[in-house]
């Protein structure tokens, strides 16, 4: 290759050495749709009615629990406790069932949690 070819990668362009089986994309689409339809068919979890908890109170509770977890975690660190995460788990365990469900619902499927630090490395 001459210099221009190197600079423009003209020797290859966008050509790739990769290929796929016959009908691959149609099959892939069907595989995905099968999984998606199975999820569509699952009953949607509806939140139970809350007799006295307002949304604001719930958020306050979560914030307070999170703050408590941080404080407890900090003191645990200061006292050189072996297992700092236990304090966070305890704080989480002290939440009522609905708030635990809320936290799990919001964060367990968050595909971008810590992505910059851990996965994308960018």
């Amino acid at each position: 290759m001459d210099q221009n070819n190197y600079d423009n990668l003209n020797g290859v362009g966008k050509r790739m050495p990769y290929n796929v089986p016959v009908d691959f994309f149609a099959k892939l689409e069907e595989n995905v749709m099968r999984e998606v339809k199975a999820e569509m068919a699952q009953p949607v979890a509806t939140p139970r009615p809350r007799a006295w908890l307002s949304k604001g109170f719930t958020r306050f509770s979560i914030a307070a629990a999170a703050a408590l977890a941080v404080v407890v975690g900090y003191h645990a660190l200061q006292s050189q406790r072996a297992d700092n995460f236990t304090a966070v788990e305890e704080a989480f365990a002290n939440l009522n069932e609905e708030d635990q469900e809320y936290l799990l619902e919001v964060y367990q499927e968050d595909v971008f949690m810590d992505e910059d630090a851990d996965e994308l490395d960018i």
């Binding site: 020797g11 290859v12 050509r15 790739m16 050495p17 990769y18 290929n19």
Partner: peptide, 14 residues
Amino acid sequence: AYIDYTDVEAVQLQ
């Protein structure tokens, strides 16, 4: 099985 090794330049680029 789904890599074309005969396309040497393309393999090299990858």
